[in-house]
């Protein structure tokens, strides 16, 4: 069964004005689709074609890893965004943020710095470590915290293709729009378990 492009959790214009439908058309319709197509081509008629994305992320290397991880990362990213996003987390996640990251303000500051400081292409993440504590990490290119045994709660894509149409070189403005208007705390709460 070939890998397929999952449906978006919202309409392509649902994130306007913070993320344009043009960005979604390219980012989802071209980039995400190309990772799917390339992965299917690389694993065709090979044992890897029977494996899950998570299994490939843990075991593959080179092009198979890059494309499998980018497929997974992008699907996780779309769910990290919401037309009703922004605001603050509730319940156990709010308590964990207070305990580990200095609350929502500490989270915003540290996540923003991490996302801004990831040089080149990559991702910023809020993760739950093995011991249960929350942490902010970044990964380069396709890399994904699943490989380190962490549980991702949220991610922000900081490849230039994620924001260049809407924000040009102004990555900090894109990060601010994510934190103010798009971050999907319900998704993060569900991932916390």
């Amino acid at each position: 069964m070939p890998f397929e492009l999952p449906a978006l959790p919202w309409k392509r214009d649902a994130l306007v004005p913070h993320m344009s439908s043009e960005t979604i058309d390219y980012h989802y319709g071209k980039h995400h689709q190309t990772y799917i197509d390339t992965l299917n081509r690389l694993v065709a008629d090979r044992p890897e074609s029977e494996m899950s994305l998570e299994e490939l992320i843990h075991t593959a290397s080179g092009g198979v890893f890059n494309n499998a991880a980018q497929v997974w990362n992008h699907t996780f990213f779309w769910h990290s965004l919401s037309p009703e996003g922004g605001g603050t987390p509730r319940g156990a996640l709010a308590e964990a943020l207070d305990r580990d990251l200095g609350g929502i303000d500490g989270f915003r500051r540290q996540f923003g710095e991490a996302a801004k400081g990831q040089f080149g292409s990559g991702w910023a993440w809020l993760v739950k470590k093995n011991g249960g504590q929350l942490a902010i990490t970044t990964t380069g290119n396709a890399d994904c915290p699943l490989r380190d045994g962490d549980t991702p709660l949220l991610t922000l894509d900081v490849w230039e293709h994620a924001y260049y149409v809407d924000y040009r070189n102004a990555r900090p403005k894109y990060i601010e729009a994510f934190l103010d208007h798009l971050v999907n705390w319900s998704f993060a709460e569900a991932n916390l378990g």
């Binding site: 390219y26 260049y164 149409v165 070189n169």
Partner: peptide
């Protein structure tokens, strides 16, 4: 081949 070198005109 940073995306900023070509994204506005060539996208992906």
């Amino acid at each position: 081949v940073w995306e900023h070198a070509y994204y506005l005109a060539y996208q992906n």
